[in-house]
Simulated scan of single mutants.
Amino acid sequence: MKFNPGKGFQFDIGPLPDFVVPHGRTQVLGTDNFMVGRWRMGSNPEGHSNPGLNHHLIAVCLAERGAVFELETDRRYIGQMRFGDLSLLPAQVPSRNRWTGPSNTLSLHLPVSLWEEIADRHGLRPELLRPGMPGTDAAISRISLMLAEELERPFRNVMFCESLALAAFAKLAERLAGQGTGRREVLADWRLRRVADYIEENLGAALSIAEMAALAGLSRSHFSQAFRDAFGMAPHQFVMVRRIEHAKRRLRMDRESVTEIAGSLGFASHAHFSGVFRRMTGFSPGEWRRGAERP
């Protein structure tokens, strides 16, 4: 099965068995930078073969007690999967999988070129990503759970999903390199201003990490951490803060409907906007407009 979610990369996950289906309301989500899907898997004692993916695969178990899982490449790996346990399958590695008992898994699909960027960022040789079942990583588990929850939201934030996926990939690199942090780029003032101005001018657009990273002259893997160091928050959080600040000013002017403001600032609906506005201010847009608070 092939997915072409963006313009620059097609994810080929090979033949999908009948007993592997998207989990509940969750659909597969992807961009040029990554693809992620949450899957429900029935028991598969007979096994399933794959001639090799065109990308790296990191699978995270989201069940408290998952299936007994077996991964066979040039070696054989087997274990009882529990919440947060990882399974790694690099690109172009033929494999055979077997598992007994139902399970649910978050699969993060990582293009080879992006992994090379991330590995370079951490001073890591890309080929250190090897097949196996390396156990649980607490940070990757937390990120994966946040990502799974965001995928189930009716108005999920794609840029937030992208930031979480990049964070998971970076944590994997840190684990493989045996380090807590990598080298950090510092965003020069003019780069900060260029990115901040772009965000202000495009608050109603579907902004992406790739666009902002290109403006800053950094790779995607460098940009998110450099932005957080500079602004004290992740890019998706900064964008949402700026959208809500613009909404506050426009609500006070009392010239536009809440629906018009929501649509022009990139929210999927009146309900989506109202939920985010209340979460960030403590008031509904209508309450704010009526003068509940005037900071």
Score class of each variant (00 low, 15 high):
residue 124 L to E: 02
residue 79 G to F: 05
residue 262 A to P: 02
residue 267 F to R: 01
residue 164 L to R: 03
residue 284 S to W: 06
residue 120 D to P: 00
residue 232 G to M: 07
residue 180 G to M: 10
residue 133 M to I: 12
residue 59 A to Y: 00
residue 181 T to L: 13
residue 100 T to S: 13
residue 54 N to L: 08
residue 100 T to Q: 11
residue 48 H to W: 14
residue 161 C to A: 15
residue 182 G to H: 07
residue 90 P to E: 07
residue 109 H to S: 12
residue 212 M to R: 04
residue 102 P to K: 10
residue 96 R to K: 14
residue 205 A to F: 07
residue 292 A to C: 08
residue 263 G to C: 04
residue 293 E to R: 14
residue 201 E to D: 13
residue 209 I to C: 04
residue 106 L to E: 01
residue 10 Q to L: 07
residue 221 S to H: 08
residue 269 S to F: 07
residue 165 A to Y: 06
residue 166 L to Q: 11
residue 276 V to S: 05
residue 265 L to N: 02
residue 245 E to Y: 08
residue 204 G to P: 01
residue 25 R to A: 13
residue 33 N to E: 14
residue 116 E to R: 15
residue 207 L to W: 03
residue 211 E to S: 08
residue 42 G to A: 10
residue 11 F to A: 04
residue 265 L to I: 11
residue 88 L to D: 03
residue 238 F to T: 03
residue 37 G to H: 01
residue 109 H to Q: 15
residue 262 A to H: 05
residue 192 L to T: 06
residue 38 R to D: 05
residue 2 K to R: 14
residue 207 L to S: 02
residue 75 R to G: 05
residue 95 S to W: 02
residue 120 D to A: 15
residue 65 R to C: 05
residue 99 W to I: 05
residue 86 L to S: 04
residue 130 R to C: 06
residue 284 S to K: 08
residue 1 M to D: 09
residue 34 F to N: 00
residue 18 D to M: 09
residue 120 D to E: 15
residue 66 G to F: 00
residue 116 E to P: 01
residue 190 W to Y: 12
residue 276 V to K: 05
residue 57 L to N: 03
residue 78 I to A: 10
residue 163 S to N: 15
residue 151 L to I: 10
residue 209 I to V: 15
residue 191 R to M: 11
residue 85 D to W: 01
residue 130 R to I: 12
residue 38 R to T: 07
residue 175 R to V: 09
residue 149 E to S: 12
residue 197 D to W: 09
residue 276 V to T: 11
residue 81 M to Q: 12
residue 106 L to H: 03
residue 9 F to A: 03
residue 196 A to S: 12
residue 291 G to Y: 05
residue 286 G to A: 15
residue 81 M to R: 10
residue 245 E to A: 14
residue 34 F to R: 01
residue 97 N to L: 15
residue 234 A to S: 11
residue 282 G to E: 09
residue 265 L to Q: 01
residue 96 R to S: 13
residue 285 P to L: 09
residue 79 G to V: 06
residue 81 M to W: 05
residue 58 I to P: 00
residue 266 G to V: 07
residue 130 R to A: 12
residue 112 V to P: 00
residue 33 N to T: 13
residue 127 E to Y: 07
residue 30 G to D: 01
residue 131 P to A: 15
residue 130 R to F: 07
residue 201 E to P: 00
residue 40 R to T: 11
residue 93 V to D: 02
residue 112 V to F: 05
residue 78 I to K: 11
residue 180 G to T: 09
residue 20 V to L: 15
residue 167 A to K: 04
residue 229 D to I: 06
residue 131 P to G: 12
residue 152 E to Q: 15
residue 65 R to W: 05
residue 80 Q to I: 09
residue 267 F to Q: 02
residue 183 R to I: 13
residue 258 V to D: 04
residue 206 A to Y: 05
residue 275 G to M: 07
residue 126 P to N: 13
residue 141 S to C: 12
residue 87 S to C: 15
residue 247 A to Y: 03
residue 291 G to I: 07
residue 265 L to H: 02
residue 55 H to T: 03
